[in-house]
Design a protein around this nucleic acid. Sequence first.
DNA 1: CACCCGATTATCT
DNA 2: GATAATCGGGTGT
Length: 211
Amino acid sequence: MPHLQSISESPYLRSPLPKSFFEEPPVRLAKKLIGTILVRETEGHLLSARIVEAEAYAGSDDPASHAYRGRTQRNEVMFRSGGYAYIYFTYGMHYCFNVVSGRKDGLAGAVLFRAAEPLDGITIMRRNRGKQDLSQLLSGPAKLCEAMDITGELNGIGLQGPPLYLTPPPDGAKIRIRATPRIGITNGKDKRWRFVDADSGYLSVRIGKTR
DNA sequence: CACCCGATTATCT
DNA sequence: GATAATCGGGTGT
């Protein structure tokens, strides 16, 4: 069975979401992104996954955000307008992938992709992760990056086409979205800015365990 | 299932 | 010098 090599071969794919889609405050954008399809095109391979979990990070008004204490070399992308990739390296070994949001008040913001359901290119993603279990292929922000070969080289790129972009959910898709506190932070735990597809079996952390 | 911990290093104070 | 938007393996209930 050959790997998918073009958009037309996949039943899931539509044209990329435009930059205007991302010009929203981070919390609103995070909700809108649940159910969208993330697409990664690399050297002859096409990988895709349905976003089931995302977290909003704001700016100087959010103590959990990288942008809380102002602009630095690392977080520079978070201060741009919507639709860029903000990819950072953490814990000495992992990448995490965000989409920059847009805010009319001029503050920084982004949405972290935390988990997704594998669609196209599952063989490649299994190889990239060294794991077989589908439910653990993309069930965490760093796992998602490892499976889909998303690294710091892509930091700052626009997400309106290859090699990395998002497409709309299928028409008429009904999604039950649940809000919970964000995972793995020490400040800003009060805000419920983690959004998940309540019916998904591909989350990083089960709902109910997060209050 | 519930903690607990080591890996490994860029980034910030 | 300390921390980190993580992960996977280990131990104990």
